[in-house]
């Protein structure tokens, strides 16, 4: 009963079960965050002055420790997964909103003018032109948000074993089985890497139109290259916001230099 994959019975899950739980607790918040960020981002693009205050708010919310969220939420949602997922969804906004705004804004003026001149109304313009062109930026944002979320789920262990793989950390101390801690850390890291790779794959499938990146697999959030002479016009697509602190390594920081 001391093996790497022997999970203490108080967690009520096998190792694979914990992985499933962990993924659910990490990914649902990002999905919800995306659903919120799309309209917020679009609003910020249309109403320019809204963007800075929205950024402050998301940043401030990001600065609130999850524990503080738990204290407040526990009265409403109890010691549940939901209590863990709400703060994670809120945190994801700090990356996703700028990703959408910068992505949509990265659409060149000429492209928009051409779309308007061809008789595409605002809705068509958004769905057929701006959003597709923002996909690389959006996925770059999703990569940061997902990886961050995967690492943050573990905090849920504080409210009664709602931290999925993170619960192994508490159990490692409780049962004096350091190997459980190793399991927790390694499994979480592998999950993060796998999900990140899947997102890169998704980007490749969704954006056959993007020129092959010269910088290798790291160059996630690139808007499509325009004609050569205008490379200078390119803006950074995703600004690494504080969320990057947990995941510097996978954040598309490099791209901002391009």
């Amino acid at each position: 009963m001391n093996g790497f994959f022997d999970i203490p019975s108080d967690l009520q899950h096998s190792w694979l079960g914990l992985i499933g739980l962990h993924l659910r607790e990490a990914l649902i918040p990002v999905a919800v965050g995306l659903l919120l960020a799309l309209p917020i981002g679009q609003l910020c693009v249309r109403v320019r002055w809204l963007y800075p205050p929205v950024l402050w708010v998301t940043t401030i919310l990001y600065a609130v420790p999850s524990l503080a969220f738990f204290v407040v939420l526990i009265d409403y949602t109890g010691q549940s997964e939901t209590t863990v997922m709400i703060p994670l969804a809120v945190y994801s906004l700090v990356v996703l909103v700028p990703a959408i705004v910068d992505g949509v804004r990265s659409v060149p003026q000429e492209t928009l003018a051409a779309a308007t001149a061809m008789g595409l109304g605002p809705v068509r313009r958004y769905l057929q032109v701006q959003l597709p062109i923002a996909v690389p930026a959006l996925i770059a944002g999703l990569r940061v948000a997902t990886v961050s979320s995967i690492s943050l789920v573990s905090v849920g262990t504080l409210i009664g074993n709602q931290g999925a793989l993170g619960n192994l950390l508490a159990d490692a101390m409780f049962y004096h089985r350091p190997v459980l801690a190793v399991n927790s850390v390694v499994t979480t890291a592998v999950l993060a890497i796998v999900i990140d790779a899947l997102l890169v794959l998704l980007r490749k499938v969704l954006t056959p139109w993007a020129p092959p990146a010269s910088g290798g697999s790291r160059s996630a959030g690139r808007g499509g290259r325009r004609t050569p002479g205008r490379a200078a016009k390119q803006r950074s697509v995703v600004r690494p916001r504080p969320a990057a602190l947990a995941v510097q390594d996978t954040a598309p920081v490099k791209d901002t230099a391009r």
């Binding site: 060149p108 000429e110 492209t111 928009l112 003018a113 051409a114 779309a115 308007t116 001149a117 061809m118 008789g119 032109v129 597709p132 062109i133 996909v135 954006t207 139109w209 499509g224 290259r225 325009r226 004609t227 205008r230």
Partner: peptide, 16 residues
């Protein structure tokens, strides 16, 4: 607008 073609500098093609 659909009854008028419009061409601009740098073409403004849809890159996607």
């Amino acid at each position: 607008r659909r009854g008028m073609g419009y061409v601009i500098q740098n073409a403004g093609l849809f890159q996607h």
